[in-house]
Design a protein around this nucleic acid. Structure first.
Lengths: 210, 210
DNA sequence: GTCTATAGTTCGATAGAC
DNA sequence: GTCTATCGAACTATAGAC
């Protein structure tokens, strides 16, 4: 479809395999098998395994972050933005990504959750590069709504929201298991409203210093 | 010191290497080098790499969970337990573990954060086995305090608290970076009070259905 | 209980034909 | 741009001496 069909096929396969097995648990042979191409073709297009991984992250994070920037800008263009609207703009893209089984987004959601929680140099460097800039925008937006919220409270509160998003976005089945089936991993709106309610109350409480 | 000195030396080394490099990124050779023993000795004591990993998790999770069970039981023995006290009992062990640089607990904290966020079969199985039982105790305790909180709200709220704990427990330096040094990863109390404030407000808001 | 040595496999990457 | 074939290194695990 694109000028280089081979590249996107390989990226899709790599995204899936990396998500399921992690960076070190994935081999170029597995990815080549999943993509149904020769192993050497991956090296031709992406050179090394490291660069392939970064290209997987770059492709998705670009799309997510530009969507977020756009909705952030739209929200802030109007006046009197509600905290709930801001948080919904934050949580929804993650949740939709985690439930996108057709476009393969759910694989990236898994990969993202793992990368953001890992502490190896590669994961930390990628998080810094691809996710810290948008994080700063959100922290500033939160402080514009909750006037007087300290920098510490805003940053910690934002990071807590990230933690909530990461545990909610992938369908792990843990909520269903712990609730004996009463929680439904598939229902985005069920999760989203709780994400927003919980995080909004948490952020406001930080601002009230209690 | 113990009857089998070799075992605990190897477990310490394995915990460190697994934490820094992940399961697949670690090799028995690295662990043997870190422990300063022959590689074959690890296989003598632990058989396979898989079993070694599980033994690392089992050693720490047993200590953490029994501490949590004890403090949960103490709290519930008295009456009129506050939500804040319950949440502090939940967050504090994680935070202390993540800042225990002398006993090596911070390595396990990293390992735990990664394992809990990963989605491979090994990680999911270990989370189910070692962390779901205590999770059920906390969910029940939350519902005893917030009378009328639905099963769904309690489970989702608990999982959000887990997400918050996981992003807070390891010293990643991300908070410091995003706040240009104003947040201090080293200050347990600074983080703990925000963990408790945020999660308590979030849980109460879930109960009020708004 | 701890070691050396090594068997057998799989890995990332490259050379070179088409 | 895509392939087959293969190199050299690293891996898990085991055999067997002490």
């Amino acid at each position: 479809m694109a000028k280089e069909p081979g590249k996107s096929v390989i990226l899709d396969a790599a995204e899936k395999v990396f998500a399921l097995k992690g960076f070190d648990g994935s081999s170029m042979r597995m990815i080549a098998g999943e993509a149904e191409v020769a192993q050497a073709l991956i090296h031709y297009h992406f050179d090394t395994k490291e660069k392939l991984f970064e290209d997987v992250v770059a492709r998705r994070s670009g799309a997510i972050n530009s969507a977020r920037e756009k909705s952030l800008a739209m929200l802030r263009a109007g006046d009197a933005v509600s905290l709930e609207a801001l948080l919904e703009a934050f949580f929804r893209p993650n949740l939709e990504l985690g439930h996108d089984t057709k476009g393969g987004g759910h694989y990236y959601a898994r990969l993202l959750a793992t990368t953001a929680s890992a502490n190896d140099e590669r994961s930390v460097a990628l998080t810094r590069k691809y996710y810290d800039p948008i994080a700063r925008l959100y922290v500033a937006a939160i402080q514009d709504i909750l006037i007087g919220l300290s920098d510490q409270d805003a940053v910690w509160g934002y990071l807590f929201a990230v933690g909530i998003a990461l545990t909610s976005m992938s369908k792990t089945g843990r909520a269903a298991g712990l609730s004996d089936g009463k929680c439904n991993d598939d229902d985005i709106e069920e999760i989203l409203i709780r994400n927003v309610t919980f995080a909004a109350a948490g952020l406001r409480a930080l601002g009230q210093g209690k």
